[in-house]
């Protein structure tokens, strides 16, 4: 399924864009640490299955790459000088415990694949991922100005989930299988990015930097 591999690749590219951006500009202005922290929680909860069964070398290495890239980004933002000095904690103030972690838990109780602990945790990770970008969008709206490379980052992340939706439709057309949890979570996630992507595409066309 080519769409799915494009999606995985885009996801990986988004981490790379972010790491290169932080290193090049030597700061992490405009980036939400809370969003990165939620992504780490998403991967740690979802990829517990690394200890449960083996799928493929591709699957295992991608999971490890996703986790380690996110850990590395968190390290750069929180601990590595000089990058960590420019972290703007005052603008990164979305109440994520109250709305993201709790909201995703409520959504997972409503829409899930199964009530078994692993399946419920997996469904929670899907909803957590869908909502994870909210602190970042909240922060971008507060500081108004968006560096172009940051738009590339959010752009890559948004398109990645869209390609997963295309891949699920493709899979459904072949096998008739559909996972409502992934599909609904993916749709919510893509809608959250869509507004941003709309301005992103306009700014690409005009060839100028963008501001919200």
């Amino acid at each position: 399924n080519p769409f799915r591999y494009i999606a995985d690749f885009l996801h990986l590219v988004s981490f790379l864009i972010l790491i290169l951006k932080i290193r090049k500009t030597r700061n992490c202005l405009g980036l939400s640490f809370r969003t990165q922290e939620i992504y780490l929680a998403v991967f740690c909860v979802r990829y517990i299955d690394l200890f449960m069964y083996f799928v493929s070398v591709y699957n295992t290495s991608m999971k490890l790459l996703y986790i380690s890239s996110t850990v590395f980004i968190i390290y750069l933002m929180k601990f590595k000088k000089p990058y960590c000095l420019s972290y703007d904690s005052a603008s990164d103030d979305f109440p994520h415990y109250k709305f993201i972690y709790t909201g995703a838990a409520v959504l997972a109780l409503l829409v899930h694949t199964d009530l078994a602990p692993f399946e419920l945790g997996w469904s929670y990770s899907i909803w957590l991922e869908a909502l994870a970008i909210i602190p970042q969008l909240h922060m971008l709206q507060k500081i108004k100005d968006v560096e172009n490379i940051t738009s590339n980052y959010v752009g890559a992340l948004g398109v990645y989930r869209f390609f997963y939706i295309v891949s699920w439709i493709y899979k459904y057309s072949l096998t008739g299988d559909v996972c409502w949890t992934s599909l609904l979570g993916g749709i919510v996630q893509t809608i959250l990015y869509a507004d941003f992507l709309y301005y992103y595409i306009i700014s690409l066309k005009s060839g100028k930097g963008m501001s919200l």
Binding site: D49, W122, V178, C179, W180, T181, S182
Partner: peptide
Amino acid sequence: KKNKKSKDEL
């Protein structure tokens, strides 16, 4: 309706 998730997705 099937609610079937794929083990190999990331």
